[in-house]
């Protein structure tokens, strides 16, 4: 434990290299708990890289090197005494392309719950409650309650993405990371997922990466603008879109590059 800032995610001097290519430069960020924070910036600015290092997916590549600290609720997740499985449990991640497992809807929701050990002692009816609760939270319950044993891969993309969010919830994660969760969805699906984000707001700290500036504006409390591996600006979303402090931010928001 260090300072005890109470921040959901805070980084100090985070630098990240893919081999010899430096993707993040001295990132110092504080993501507040319980709200939705959006990360925007042009392709290759490091926003996805940042997101992926918060639940330590990047290190699987093998050639990634990191200096500095990433603290999640005041604990350095790259510390030596940190159990990776617990990081993955507390920090859930949603991807661009929905990636439900090729098993039933029910088993998808229970997957994390079971691998983290809660499933073994739970009775069938407890499990049913877990499934219902998670699917209700993502506003999917009414659509799938009659076919919980159907293959999850047969759902529509929007439903799949909601399911991918739902399966994170039974283990009660503290942080949800979303890497362009709507980019594979049509406008209606996007709207539904954004609606869902507001439902989840307050219960989880949400960090969402998006290419879609309108989405960042609609669906976040705070906004982080990144450019070439550096954080340019981090303020309340309204402020950023109305009165950006830096010229780069303004130019990006107005679509002069990106």
């Amino acid at each position: 434990m260090d300072s005890g800032s109470g921040m959901a995610i805070s980084t100090t001097d985070l630098n990240l290299w893919y081999g010899t290519f430096q993707a993040l430069f001295d990132v110092n960020l504080e993501v507040k708990p319980g709200i939705i924070t959006a990360m925007i910036g042009p392709s290759g600015c490091g926003k996805s890289t940042f997101l992926r290092s918060v639940n330590r997916i990047n290190e699987r590549l093998g050639y990634v090197r990191i200096t500095g600290e990433i603290n999640v609720y005041d604990r350095n997740i790259y510390g030596e005494d940190v159990e990776l499985v617990q990081v993955r449990k507390q920090v859930g991640m949603v991807f661009q392309r929905p990636n439900p497992l090729p098993i039933s809807i029910r088993d998808n929701v229970l997957f994390g719950y079971q691998i983290h050990g809660q499933g073994k002692t739970a009775s069938k009816s407890d499990q049913d409650d877990v499934v219902e609760d998670a699917l209700r939270q993502v506003l999917l319950w009414d659509q799938v309650k009659d076919r919980l044993n159907a293959k999850a891969t047969g759902l529509s993309l929007e439903q799949q993405q909601k399911l991918c969010i739902a399966r994170l919830l039974p283990v009660k994660p503290r942080v949800l990371l979303m890497d362009e969760p709507c980019s594979a969805l049509d406008p209606k699906g996007t709207e539904a997922v954004e609606e869902l984000l507001w439902e989840l707001r307050g219960k989880y700290s949400i960090l969402i990466v998006t290419h879609n500036m309108a989405q960042a504006r609609r669906a976040s409390d705070e906004c982080i603008f990144m450019l070439l591996g550096k954080v340019v600006e981090h303020t309340e979303t309204e402020t950023m879109f109305v009165t950006p402090k830096f010229e780069e931010t303004e130019n990006y928001i107005e679509g002069r590059y990106g």
Binding site: R88, I103, F111
Partner: peptide
């Protein structure tokens, strides 16, 4: 491969991934 990644990202070990997702498929 995406199925394996999905499992690992939820904190599943290699063996949990193999037994629950890879082998059945």
């Amino acid at each position: 491969y995406a199925f394996r990644e999905a499992c690992w990202n939820m904190g599943a070990t290699r063996w949990q991934t193999i037994r629950r997702v890879v082998l059945p498929n």
